[in-house]
Amino acid sequence: MLKKTFLPTQVKNEQMALQITSMADIFVIILVFLLKSYSVEGLAYEPSVPLTPPMAHGRIDQTDGLKVEISAKAVNLAGKSVSPVSDFRFAKGDMDSNGASQSLRRALAKTRPSVVSGPKGAKLIVVADAGAPYETIKAVLSSAASEGYNDIQLAVAHAE
């Protein structure tokens, strides 16, 4: 009897098929879950400057509005930098006697005619970094109020 190793080896079937149906199922479930979670939980929003808003239980409002973003380096209105700030603070020369920023006021006044007004008046959404001092928030709110923005909303990262 021949040793097993000397026997002619059988040609194995080279064709193989991966069974990836179950993986496809999982991907579909993950995809649907991600898409659903993005559409339901509030207004998905990407700020034009890097900032982290504070976490809070805010109400969900699907209506959009003019956004002012406050980061450590700039204050942006509708995605465009309007007031340079240094470490969240406006330049002293930019502040008026009412504690409002002159450059931001000018930009807000320019945008005011094109802003959609709600029942309370012109709407402005303030998206500020959690580390911003209240001094800067006050300056922005004061600027907005003096330019006739009566419906001011604060955006927060929606807490679960």
């Binding site: 929003y45 808003p53 805010g58 927060v156």
Partner: peptide
């Protein structure tokens, strides 16, 4: 992207 909530001021 983060989902934002609104607080009226």
């Amino acid at each position: 992207f983060f989902s934002i909530g609104i607080i009226d001021a």
